[in-house]
Nucleic acid binder design. Structure first.
Lengths: 213, 213
DNA sequence: CTGGTAATCTAATCTTCATTAGATTATTTT
DNA sequence: AAAATAATCTAATGAAGATTAGATTACCAG
């Protein structure tokens, strides 16, 4: 009993998807390797063939999530649209993305903390595996900041252009992002409204809030 | 080595505070009874004198949190102020409260999921302890809904009065609450702005978004 | 004072994981 | 088709952590 035929064997991506699902359901600490493995019909031990350890797996989920979102938002920032159009598009894309992939969306919201609390062990000798995870963790946080910066840039740009009223940019962005992130938590595909409709409404909310008086 | 002198012995409230802190730091699953106990200079075993089990303790933290917030928001809803004044006061109070007690605030945001995932064991016989926790869990969720309803009420009221533009109330409320909840995550007392200033800005944001055109 | 109760402690117990070791078998390369 | 590699499995191992059992001691009511 060992290797399955090629077309049944899972790849990293399958595992990431599965992990994202389980993560959404249970949260990081409550998610066991066994749970994840079960989703793809493997045993827990098999996962170690694909990922160093549980932390590395989690991190991979988050990395994939943030990269996906960034890849959708970044082009908009560098487009030639006006600031308010840019912002609308960014919010729309971001929110729709979260509703499409609530698993990753919720993971992004909820698991950062687990992530942050992986502190380097007080002793001197650092296990290379741990070191790598630590490193990627830092990179991930940096990536999140870059993402937040995309919104900040557009805001600044718009304020300077007089297209938006002057607001405290960092606070306004946190306000928006909080609202957005939360969507990944409460949105249900079978709910009353589609992701697109919701995204439109929310974008409206924040754009109106920015209208110069 | 046993009972400490009365003035050094801890009460439930001390433990709740401690639990809230640790919870904020580590998240539910990663928080050990030992961690909590350590904050109040007890051993893990001693906590069981005060709480049935870990779930009951967590629940107590969340219950205290939501009750605190509701107690601050509810009177405003029933005051005689105009809808927009009410809403401003509600948001202000809510956000300030979250910045004052980030421990509980963050717990409220993050731990709902742990809470929700305590599903009744598939078998028939239900441990009375588990039953009680389950029951309180339902009550807690109901309480959260009631809280959300306070915001909905005021929104409706304001829209009917023509004081706010017509928005999709449920979505707008989720948008606001997402933004608010998130404050409990990023706010740092040593940060650039005070809780009050932040609360004011955020309230502004949403009130402008509601202005009839 | 003396018994009763409350609050703690220490020392198990019992599970639940993550992770590792050591096979086993499918695919691919040569 | 033999050798190398990849993907799995089963069966440990080990540690962490919740919970329980059984003292022990402080404080209070009579």
């Amino acid at each position: 009993m060992a290797r399955k035929p090629a077309d049944q064997s899972v790849n990293k991506d399958d595992i990431l998807q599965a992990a994202a699902h389980v993560l959404q359901r249970n949260g990081y600490e409550a998610t066991t390797m066994k749970d994840i493995a079960a989703e793809v019909n493997l045993t827990a031990a098999s996962l170690y063939h694909h990922f160093r350890n549980k932390d590395a797996l989690l991190l991979a989920v988050l990395e994939a999530g943030i990269e996906l979102v960034i890849s959708q938002i970044e082009p908009i920032v560098h487009s030639t649209a006006t600031s308010d159009e840019k912002l609308r598009q960014m919010m729309f894309a971001h929110i729709v993305s979260l509703t499409r992939n609530t698993a990753v969306g919720a993971a992004l919201v909820f698991e950062i903390k687990s992530l942050i609390s992986i502190t380097p062990p007080p002793g001197q000798p650092v296990d290379p595996d741990v070191a790598e995870v630590l490193e990627r963790q830092v990179t991930f946080i940096a990536r999140r900041d870059q993402f937040e910066n995309l919104y900040r840039q557009v805001l600044h740009e718009g304020i300077t252009a007089g297209c938006f009223r002057p607001v405290d940019v960092p606070i306004f962005v946190k306000t928006m992002l909080g609202a957005h992130n939360w969507v990944g938590v409460w949105y249900r595909p079978e709910g009353r409204l589609s992701g697109e409709v919701i995204a439109g409404m929310m974008a409206d909310t924040f754009l109106r809030a920015l209208q110069p008086t």
